[in-house]
Design a protein around this nucleic acid. Structure first.
Lengths: 237, 237
DNA sequence: CAAAAAAAGATTGCATACGATTTTTGCGAG
DNA sequence: CTCGCAAAAATCGTATGCAATCTTTTTTTG
C-alpha cells in the first residue's frame, strides 16, 4: 500500500531508463526497510504508483528479482524477498570470500580524493548514529552499507562492484529479518579502523579487519529457524 | 495445453517461463561461439526465431544483459557483448578471488556421488578434445566451463553459484575474443589434478591448483589493445 | 561529382488489450 | 457456525499497436 509514503520527486533522468529509476527507488525502499520482507509488489500497484504502465513496472521487478531482492512466483506476483537462515549464511559466506580481496585491491588504489570521500562517508554515518528516530535509523542502515559500496568502487572492478551491490542489499534484508541489536555503532568504529589501514596502504591489515567486521555483523544475527515464516507473516500486516 | 509442447519436454520445462528457456538457448549459443561477439540480436528476430512475441524475446534479452553477455543500447538494440581487455582482466580477477574459496568449500563437501559426477564430466571433456571438427570444439569449450560450474554447485552456495555462472559465461566470450591457442588440452589435465586434490580432501592444494589454473587460462590470452576496432573496420570491405 | 538534406524504412520504448490463472467472495448445505 | 463450492474480482502472461528514435536510401544542391 504505502510503498512511498513520502512522494519521490521522480528523478527526471529523462533520457535514462525509467525502469531502472523505479528499480533504484524500490531497492532503496527495501534496503532501508520501508518495505518489509514479504510485502507484495503487484505490477499494477507499482505502475500506478510511479505513473508508468505495467510493462515498465514489470521490467523493474524483473531486475530486482535478478538481484535476489524480490521473489517472483508465476501467476502470483512479486514479493519482497524473505531470505531463509540458510540464504543468510550464504550471503555472508560470499562476503567473507569477496570483501577481503576487495579491501586489498582498494588499498592499492587509494588516492587523497578517495580518502576524503571515505571521511565524508564516515562523518555521515556517525551523524545518523547520533540522531534519534526511525528516519535516522533508516539512513544509518543505508550509510553503513554505502561504506562497503564505496570501498568496492575504489577497488575498481565493476563486476565485483555489482556483486557487492547485490550482497550489501541482501545483507540489509537479512539484518532486518534476523538482526538482534543495532550493531551499527560497533560497525562504525570498525569502518574507521578499516579506513585507517587503507590510508596507510596496509592492505593485509585492511583485509583482516574486513574479515572480522563481517564476522561481527553475522555474529549479531539470530539465525536459528523461527517457528515458520507463515506464522510471522500471519502476525504482520 | 498444446500437445506439441508436451511431446517435446526437451524444450526446457514446458510450463516454465518461456523467456528463461530462450535465455538459456541464447546463452548456450553465445558461450560456445555460435553467436559471435558483436552480433545484433533484434527483438523481432529473436521473437520470430523462437515463435514468441517481442515482449518475451525482450525479457530474455534483458536477462542476458544483466549477466553481461549482451549489451543493450537505448533505441538501438541488443548485441552480443564485446568485452574490452579491461573487462576481461576484471573477469579473471573476480575468478581468482572467488574460485579458490569455492574449491575449499567443495573439498569439504565431496561425496562419492560428486566424485562420480566429476569423473563423468572429465571423461566427456577428454572425449571432445580427442574429436575433430568445429562441433566438437564447441562442446569442448562448454564442457570445460561446466567443470567449474559443477564445482560451484558442489560448494553448495547458490549465490556464489550464480556469480560463477556469469563469470564462466563471460570468460567464454573473453576467450573467444582474445584466446591465442586451444588451451583446453592443458586445462583438462589441470582439471584432473584439481579433482584428485578434492577427492583426497586436500582443500589447500585444490585451492592453490585452482588459482594456478585460472592464471594459466588468463596467460593464454592476448589482452593488448588492438589497433582500434574503428581502424580494423575501416580496412575490411 | 560530392556533400548535405530529406524522406523512407526499420527497430525500439511503451501502453494497452485479452485470455489464463489465482484469489477472494458469496451462498447454501451439513 | 463451519465447510465446501461456484461465481466474481484481481492479477499475471503475452500479443499487438502506435509513437519516438535511429539507420539507410534517395534526392537536391553547390
Amino acid at each position: 500500500m504505502n510503498i512511498a509514503d513520502q512522494t519521490f520527486p521522480a528523478v527526471e533522468s529523462a533520457n535514462e531508463d525509467r525502469a531502472q529509476a523505479i528499480r533504484d527507488q524500490l531497492r532503496d525502499a527495501i534496503v532501508d526497510r520501508r518495505l518489509a520482507p514479504g510485502t507484495k509488489l503487484s505490477e499494477g500497484e507499482v505502475g500506478t504508483l510511479f505513473d508508468v504502465s505495467r510493462t515498465v513496472a514489470r521490467a523493474a521487478l524483473q531486475m530486482l528479482s535478478f538481484e535476489g531482492l524480490v521473489r517472483t512466483e508465476r501467476n502470483r506476483g512479486a514479493f519482497v524477498a524473505n531470505p531463509s537462515p540458510e540464504e543468510a549464511r550464504q550471503v555472508f559466506a560470499s562476503r567473507r570470500l569477496i570483501e577481503p580481496g576487495i579491501a586489498i585491491a582498494a588499498a592499492g588504489r587509494m588516492t587523497p580524493a578517495h580518502v576524503a570521500a571515505f571521511k565524508a562517508q564516515l562523518d555521515e554515518e556517525g551523524r545518523f548514529i547520533a540522531e534519534r528516530g526511525p528516519s535516522a535509523r533508516r539512513s544509518e542502515i543505508k550509510a553503513s552499507g554505502d561504506f562497503h559500496l564505496l570501498l568496492a568502487s575504489v577497488a575498481g572492478n565493476v563486476i565485483l562492484q555489482r556483486f557487492m551491490e547485490e550482497l550489501v542489499a541482501r545483507s540489509s534484508l537479512v539484518i532486518a529479518l534476523y538482526g538482534r541489536s543495532g550493531v551499527s555503532s560497533c560497525g562504525h568504529s570498525e569502518h574507521m579502523n578499516i579506513l585507517e589501514a587503507l590510508e596507510n596502504g596496509n592492505s593485509e591489515r585492511a583485509s583482516a579487519l574486513m574479515l572480522h567486521h563481517i564476522d561481527h555483523i553475522e555474529a549479531d544475527l539470530d539465525l536459528r529457524v523461527r517457528s515458520g515464516p507463515a506464522l510471522r507473516q500471519a502476525l504482520e500486516f
